[in-house]
């Protein structure tokens, strides 16, 4: 069953077509990487998936719910993390997680917060103001917030940005384990190609709002004759086709 089904999705702002006839599906337990340069339409697509933005045309279904008419039923089983959307900095990490525990209707939120604090190494940070944390610590707290409701669908925008390599690796391992244990479906926007190769079962490449290629990481590598996704990304960003890409 497709947990995310995006069909002919478009978004126009006045004269600018930010997303142009995008369609893709994500199966249960899969991780889809949404890749593209700045202005490719990744953030706009994620915003529409989350119901923050109304599409100009097309349809989005998440967990069987039409996001145009029934988004709150889906949102209760989804969550989102981005280093570019803050959590309130003046209140403590524990209070932040309590707030989102209430908003997502988490039963036994106290125990869930303790679990997440232990697993993401946040125990020593729980009573500190969220605004006083380092960028890496904030990213881990944002990840904890995104997992507070044990989501069935997780949307991650640059989840390991600002993390040192060791912590970044811990977070990736944790996401892999969480997906394996829960069957969670993940949509990941990232510029870290090694991360995409490691976590994603499928990749959608966006350019100027359109899907220019898609497939498994291995399929893309084979198609462009490259050994890593970074080079595939550059080929697409610079307009080289699969045929033009060097051997």
């Amino acid at each position: 069953m497709d947990v995310i089904a995006v069909s002919h999705l478009s978004k126009r702002y006045d004269e600018t077509l930010a997303v142009d006839d995008v369609s893709f599906t994500v199966a249960r337990g899969a991780t889809l990487g949404l890749l593209g340069g700045n202005g490719a339409g990744k953030t706009t697509t994620i915003a529409m998936l989350l119901g923050l933005l109304v599409p100009t045309s097309g349809e989005i279904r998440v967990l069987g719910h039409n996001m145009a008419t029934d988004r709150f039923a889906a949102l209760a089983r989804m969550n989102f993390s981005s280093p570019y959307v803050s959590l309130p900095g003046r209140i403590s990490v524990r209070e932040n997680l309590q707030v989102y525990g209430h908003l997502y209707g988490v039963t036994n939120a106290k125990r869930r917060i303790a679990e997440l604090a232990s697993e993401l190494d946040l125990e020593s940070l729980l009573d500190r103001a969220a605004g006083e944390l380092s960028a890496g610590q904030k990213t881990r707290v944002a990840l904890a917030k995104s997992l507070i409701n044990k989501p069935d669908v997780l949307l991650l925008d640059e989840p390991t940005a600002s993390l040192d390599p060791d912590t970044g690796d811990l977070v990736r391992s944790w996401l892999e384990r969480y997906r394996a244990e829960t069957g969670c479906t993940i949509l990941l926007a990232s510029h870290n190609m090694a991360e995409v190769e490691r976590l994603c079962s499928d990749v959608v490449m966006l350019k100027k709002g359109r899907i220019v290629d898609h497939g498994t990481p291995q399929e893309l590598l084979d198609r462009y004759g490259r050994v890593d996704l970074e080079d595939v990304f550059l080929d697409i960003a610079r307009g080289r086709t699969t045929l033009e890409a060097p051997e």
Binding site: L50, L52, L75, A76, N79, S82, V85, L87, L103, G105
Partner: peptide
């Protein structure tokens, strides 16, 4: 001011 609205509006809060 706390740039938190994004999180609030993607929660199930009506």
């Amino acid at each position: 001011w706390s740039r938190n609205l994004g999180h609030v509006f993607v929660s199930p809060l009506r």
